[in-house]
Amino acid sequence: KELVLALYDYQEKSPREVTMKKGDILTLLNSTNKDWWKVEVNGRQGFVPAAYVKKL
């Protein structure tokens, strides 16, 4: 599985998104969309802005 690092805090704005804190390590589930990547964090799956994370 591929991991990404949260570069910034992000507060979810819809049920399809997830909240993350700067420094969190997230599991990358899908990065086919250039703007929104699907990740898993704390057992929850959802989208975060691709610009807010970096592949490890």
Rank of each mutant, 00 (worst) to 15 (best):
K21F: 13
P49Y: 03
V4F: 08
E40C: 11
M20W: 02
K55P: 11
K21C: 10
D35V: 15
K13G: 08
W37N: 02
S31A: 13
T32I: 10
D35H: 15
L7Q: 05
P15K: 11
K38D: 04
P15V: 09
K21R: 13
P15M: 10
Y10S: 01
V39A: 02
I25P: 02
E12Y: 05
T27R: 14
V53D: 00
Y8W: 11
K1Q: 12
A51C: 14
W37F: 08
L28Y: 02
D35R: 14
N33A: 09
A50C: 07
V39G: 00
E12L: 09
T27S: 09
Y52F: 14
G46W: 03
Q45W: 08
L28K: 01
R44A: 07
L3I: 10
K21W: 11
P15C: 08
W37K: 02
L29D: 02
K34W: 08
Y52E: 02
G23I: 00
V41Q: 12
S14D: 12
N30D: 15
E17L: 06
V4E: 00
D9W: 04
K13N: 10
V39C: 05
F47M: 09
N33Q: 10
V48Y: 00
P49E: 01
S31I: 07
L7W: 04
E12N: 08
K1Y: 14
A50T: 05
S31E: 13
L56E: 04
A6W: 02
N33F: 09
K55V: 13
W36A: 02
L26E: 00
K55E: 07
N30V: 09
K21H: 11
P15F: 10
N42T: 07
K21N: 09
V41P: 00
Q11V: 14
V41F: 15
K1H: 14
T19P: 07
R16E: 13
Q11P: 08
N33L: 10
T19H: 05
A6R: 01
K21P: 01
A50V: 06
D24S: 08
K34H: 12
F47E: 04
N30W: 09
W36V: 03
N30Q: 11
E40P: 00
W36T: 02
N42Y: 13
K13L: 11
P49H: 02
K34T: 12
T27N: 09
E2P: 12
R44Q: 08
D24G: 04
R16H: 13
G23W: 06
Y8V: 11
E12D: 05
K1L: 15
Y10T: 01
W36P: 00
T27Q: 12
R16A: 13
K38Q: 13
L28D: 00
